[in-house]
Design a protein around this nucleic acid. Structure first.
Lengths: 337, 337
DNA sequence: ATGAAAGCGCTAACAA
DNA sequence: TTGTTAGCGCTTTCAT
């Protein structure tokens, strides 16, 4: 609380240290030319006054900020958290921050969020997914900063992208199950258009099944994203009722896959002996639960790191449209052995 | 990408609409007095130019921002995510944003983060926990904005707090186990001072055991926070080796509790018949897994909501030191029945 | 190595 | 209802 007067500015520090405001500005930058004595006197004065650097004024005058804006669907998702961590890891090496916003898997929220973020003048913007509202797309196209789409391979990239095909990833899992002799394969989730990654995965499932000549497509809806463990369990219950002879179920994420597993446990259905389960995302739980879950690793952290390097390159003057494809990995575990 | 010229400013919009910059400024504020025709002409001009409002300049001139800064230990934790969601829910009603940063459970990182956030002039700052480095404490004390500490009952509150006693919450769980006749109770986690909430929980465990005359205190370390499911499983393995006759284990969080449960499953140890398990946090998994886990609900979302209302009150001129205690709830589930 | 003047894009304050 | 002037706190630019 202390005093109720205004916060001290550089001029206040300058007065106290007996120098000009410009010299204070220089003293606070690591790389500028200034005598060691002057600098230490200024730093002491600043500390004594409780001076806090005013980033807003600095940003306005220098016409640049020190952060990159990022939109992710959910703040509470280990996959997206890993991507952000990878991105921050790279950017922090250049003293850049990450300004985070979440869309709650809603494209309209994403549109508003993108506008909010652009108003703060980020040096670059990273969005999750390759589909957006028309206005969001326009905002991104008109932004005079690098735009990177992630976690997808956009049909028409706005600028750059670092991602993978959700459809192809699931297709690879279906191919695996078919190749080891499984039949009567079902898919849980991805029914709402809102989460394009989820519906892409479902689309990949359907395409793969048809490619293998399986016309018996078993789809179970699981509601709006994010699909919870509980919704996965409920969907499993419906699957067992509608298609009791199903031998494999692929779930839109590891969380719903775990929920499905628990439903089997409650009913005394043995996994994988009676039914095999596959998930998506390689969340920690899929490697720890009993039995452990077969899944797809999207290399979330690597997506973030590659995005970070890409942005640094672009800010350093690199040009051209960068398209980075990350190959997801199939991890076979106990739930399908 | 479009043109490489500068971004349009209010003056550009004003010229195009044939009005002054000030009128444009008014047109973009929802509540200002301006004729409908002028406003719509201005909005059209702005849209055609692809004008983006420059929040930095606005913030500098008006000496205020539209956001509240928040520090949480981890971006990928459902409890803290719920608190942030509750806070955002309240603040968004007043068109305020949340500027989020995470400390990775490290007080030194927290100190740097607090300084970074204060440089951007938030209208208030919310921190997780009631203990900080001396410098972080000083920064918060000198900040001329409301400071709210959460998820704890600070010994010496800096400004306001919305929280609960982690020690008391675990004490209540121990009391419950003792009251239903359990003996030989152990605790996993909370050994590193870094995560003060974890060590407070452990402290509460020790205090409760002593209060009940149990001198046989069984503590198993689980490493640095955040304690993962895997670390919970490893700690359980060590517990079974060191104290094989343990009848109850309380874990520092539901995630480590679930890990401990899986270790029992891998070894054919039946929960709760051979050993009961308790967690902390009421994460979704604790209600879904088989058997479901007894836990403590800290009312994470409510903490966020109460914090939000508190901040709005303070920004509206309320004074005094607000101390809000949230009572955690004990949830008994299959793992201890 | 340091200082003086100007101005980044908005909006408070006042005027019309 | 709309316009004019000044200035928020910094840093660019140029000078010494």
């Amino acid at each position: 609380m202390s005093s109720d007067r205004k916060s001290p500015t550089m001029s206040d520090v300058a007065r106290k240290a007996g120098v000009s405001a410009m010299t204070v500005s220089r003293a606070l930058k690591a790389d500028s030319v200034i005598s060691p004595e002057t600098r230490s006197a200024i730093l002491t004065a600043a500390e004594e006054l409780g001076y806090i650097f005013h980033a807003t004024a600095s940003n306005l005058r220098s016409q640049k900020t020190d952060f990159v804006a990022v939109t992710i669907p959910s703040i509470n998702n280990a996959n997206f958290a890993d991507t952000v961590a990878g991105l921050s890891e790279i950017l922090s090496g250049r003293n850049m921050q990450t300004l985070l916003g979440y869309t709650n898997y809603d494209m309209d929220v994403e549109e508003q969020l993108i506008e909010q973020l652009l108003r703060r003048n980020p040096q670059a913007i990273v969005v999750t997914g390759g589909r957006h509202t028309p206005r969001a797309r326009r905002l991104l196209e008109n932004a005079r900063i690098p735009v990177v789409e992630t976690w997808d391979v956009p049909d028409q990239p706005i600028g750059h992208y670092v991602g993978f095909s959700n459809a192809d990833a699931v297709r690879a899992m279906v191919d695996h199950f078919v190749s080891v002799g499984y039949k009567r394969i079902a898919f849980i989730g991805g029914d709402q258009g809102r989460d394009t990654r989820g519906s892409d995965r479902r689309r990949g499932f359907v395409a793969a099944m048809k490619a293998h000549g399986h016309d018996d497509i078993r789809l179970i809806a699981a509601g709006a994203p994010p699909i919870s463990m509980r919704e996965g369990a409920d969907a499993m219950a419906r699957l067992l009722q509608e298609y009791p002879d199903t031998k494999v179920v692929i779930c839109v994420s590891d969380l719903s896959a775990f929920g499905a597993l628990t439903e089997c446990q409650r009913r005394g259905i043995v996994v994988p002996d009676q039914i095999a389960i596959g998930g998506f995302g390689n969340y920690e739980i899929s490697g720890v639960c009993v039995p452990s879950l077969t899944t797809i690793d999207a290399h979330s952290r690597e997506i973030g790191r590659r995005t970070g390097s890409l942005i640094l390159d672009l800010l350093n003057g690199a040009s051209g449209s960068m398209q980075v494809n990350i190959e997801p990995g199939l991890i076979i575990r106990q739930s399908s052995l």
